[in-house]
Design a protein around this nucleic acid. Structure first.
Length: 458
DNA sequence: GCATGATCATGC
DNA sequence: GCATGATCATGC
């Protein structure tokens, strides 16, 4: 079947809105045993009337449109999110290095996408998923500037012979996500003998979520960088420049400067102050467009006069059943650090404030950071492996003078991360896979490791 | 002084 | 009621 215009394709796609996949499953891919092929194939065959063969990409090549069928999920709080990243073409390490952004495989293939969103629902069969909305998507100018930078970062790593160190959190919107069965899918790279994990260009889940909220929820979010600004500077540089305006000032001075009244008794006050520093008032940091699209998470760090934080840095509670059930590449820790960029906003107390209970910290710096792939694959994986072994053998819980101790990975056993309790009190427990109950535990980045991040040694 | 178990405070 | 960021407090 031939399509003459993009409008014609779009019209066809929109005709499917409100229908479910079984309406288009002409070859019974969803009902026959050992069914092959994804929902995308069903749409190609059943809606657009393409005949599939193994080599056929079945996209609208003549019209320069790439078809993508992608899921949306409803969150507990009823908001919508993308369920997954949008996987684009596989990166051919040998070839991609020969291109510029304009001639890159990413840009040639994906500059115009027909995205069909469907609603994923846990309790439904695949065939009953409903198609919600189809949009013809081209990248907004301000996003494209960031995506160009992302492409340069990815290709820069391949050119440096470091394709094996690519990570999805290296970049903002355009990611290099792993593709294929874990570590068995290795590929050669041009400037190194080290085989690298196969990866594909992808639009991050966080980026896709912003599209869902824009096209389906018609939600407006606030951005802090302008398209003009982004033409000249990277998002990282713009961010750093913004924080540099206030470096060396203490919290009171900053609050006077930006007209935001700090309330020292409120722990969240610093976070509100940071929003105001970025020129955004009355908004939560996570609602800022660039941060939510790039999946950037804020962490405030308070350094003592000696340059170290008092404590390690805590994250979410550990999901023990996941730890035992999933391979490392699907684990809570891998996902967190593979997919999240962090913005550490660093404050420090000076010497004179040592004995002062009302001491006020000053802004030292902001550091944008993601965990290097090497550390994810080595230290983080070692911590995960050690903890998993403990879970398999059964956690040893030993009462002590001061509560209950366990043999999960400790801060002395890794240079990067450890497991420690985080609960309301000792009776705030969770069930372990072996049936015992344990005080709720979180994972933490070691204090000295945080120091290294802040000093930009990692 | 640090590691580690315990718990507080806030916001959703 | 719970998750999360933050911090306390004891013992080595």
């Amino acid at each position: 079947m031939d399509y003459k215009s993009i409008d014609e394709i779009l019209e066809k796609a929109q005709y499917a809105e409100g229908k479910s996949f079984q309406d288009f499953d002409i070859n019974q891919r969803l009902t026959s045993k050992g069914n092959k092929g994804g929902l995308g194939q069903i749409i190609e065959e059943g809606l657009f009337g393409y005949e599939l063969n193994s080599t056929n990409e079945a996209d609208f090549a003549d019209l320069g449109v790439e078809l993508k069928v992608t899921p949306i999920k409803v969150n507990k709080d009823k908001t919508l999110s993308a369920k997954e990243r949008l996987v684009l073409n596989i990166i051919n390490y040998m070839e991609e290095v020969n291109y510029t952004f304009e001639t890159s495989s990413f840009w040639r293939k994906n500059n115009q996408l027909l995205i069909m969103f469907y609603l994923w629902e846990k309790e439904l069969k695949k065939s009953d998923y409903k198609i919600l909305k189809s949009v013809l998507f081209t990248f907004p100018a301000e996003d494209l500037e960031i995506i160009k930078d992302d492409w340069e970062i990815i290709v820069g790593k391949i050119r440096a012979g470091k394709a094996e160190e690519l990570s999805e959190s290296d970049t903002m919107y355009l990611g290099a996500c792993t593709k294929g069965a874990t570590s068995n899918s290795l590929r050669v790279q041009p400037f190194s003998d080290v085989p690298a994990m196969q990866r594909a260009f992808s639009l991050k889940q966080s980026y896709m979520t912003s599209l869902v909220r824009k096209y389906i929820d018609h939600e407006k979010i606030v951005s802090f960088a302008t398209p003009e600004d982004l033409k000249e500077n990277s998002l990282k540089d713009i961010l750093y420049a913004r924080f540099n305006l206030y470096t060396g000032m203490d919290v009171i001075e900053i609050s006077e400067e930006i007209g935001y009244k700090v309330n020292p008794s409120n722990k969240a006050t610093i976070v509100h102050m940071i929003s105001a520093m970025l020129g955004i008032k009355g908004t939560k940091l996570k609602d800022i467009e660039e941060f939510s699209k790039a999946n950037i998470e804020f962490k405030t760090v308070r350094l003592e006069p000696n340059g170290k934080p008092k404590e390690s840095m805590s994250f979410e509670n550990v999901d023990f059943s996941r730890w035992l059930a999933d391979p490392f590449e699907e684990s809570q820790f891998y996902e967190k650090f593979e997919e999240t960029k962090f913005l550490f906003v660093v404050f420090q107390y000076d010497e004179t404030a040592k004995e002062n209970p009302n001491r006020v910290p000053y802004l030292k710096k902001a550091v944008l950071w993601n965990m290097p792939e090497k550390i994810i694959q080595n230290e983080l994986k070692e911590m995960w492996t050690a903890g998993r072994k403990v879970l398999q053998e059964g956690v040893k819980l030993t009462p002590t003078k001061r509560g209950m101790t366990n043999n999960l990975p400790k801060s002395t056993e890794s240079t990067v991360a450890h497991i420690r309790p985080k609960a309301k009190d000792g009776s705030d427990t969770v069930k372990l896979p072996d049936g015992q109950f344990i005080t709720k535990q979180a994972y933490w980045l070691n204090r000295d490791f945080v120091v290294k991040i802040i000093n930009e040694e990692i």
